[in-house]
Amino acid sequence: MPKIADAPKRPANLSLNSKVLDMAKELGMNVSATVDALLAVEVEKRYWERWNEDNRQAIVDYNARIEREGLTLARYRTFARED
């Protein structure tokens, strides 16, 4: 995933629950920073959900090949495999 945390900020219009917004301000919260952090978490979650769905068949095929043929370098392992 591209690094998004260091991107420059830009203004956005949001509609937020007025009571929640008032309470956040009373608590001294930085609403912009809070929304930015929470949105970044949600974006990353959805990015990986989409990536997994887009690559689902390739992952299934890869796992089937490994199950069928084993790992290419498995013979060089210096540790015991636990099943």
Rank of each mutant, 00 (worst) to 15 (best):
R46W: 05
M29V: 07
R50E: 08
N63W: 05
A24R: 00
P11W: 03
W48F: 15
V41A: 09
A37S: 14
V20M: 11
L38Q: 11
V43K: 03
R56I: 06
D22T: 02
N52T: 06
L39S: 15
N55G: 02
V31F: 01
W48M: 13
A40T: 13
Y62V: 03
N30V: 07
D6W: 02
A12L: 14
A24G: 06
N63Q: 14
V35Y: 00
A37C: 04
A37Y: 05
N63T: 13
A5H: 09
W51H: 12
L38H: 08
D54M: 05
S15T: 15
V43W: 08
S18I: 06
E49Q: 13
L38N: 11
K19F: 07
L38E: 13
S15V: 15
S15W: 08
R46G: 01
R46H: 12
A5V: 05
E53S: 11
S18A: 15
N30L: 04
W51A: 11
P11R: 12
E44R: 14
P11Q: 14
M23R: 10
D61M: 07
A40W: 03
L21D: 00
N63R: 15
L27P: 00
K9Q: 13
K9A: 12
K25F: 01
L14D: 02
V35T: 00
E49A: 07
V31M: 02
E44L: 11
Y47K: 03
E49D: 13
S15E: 12
V43E: 05
E26S: 09
S32I: 02
E44M: 12
G28C: 01
V20F: 10
S15Y: 10
K9Y: 12
E49L: 11
L27C: 09
D6C: 04
M23F: 05
K25H: 06
D22V: 00
I59F: 06
N63L: 14
R56Q: 13
V60E: 06
Y47N: 03
A58S: 09
P2W: 02
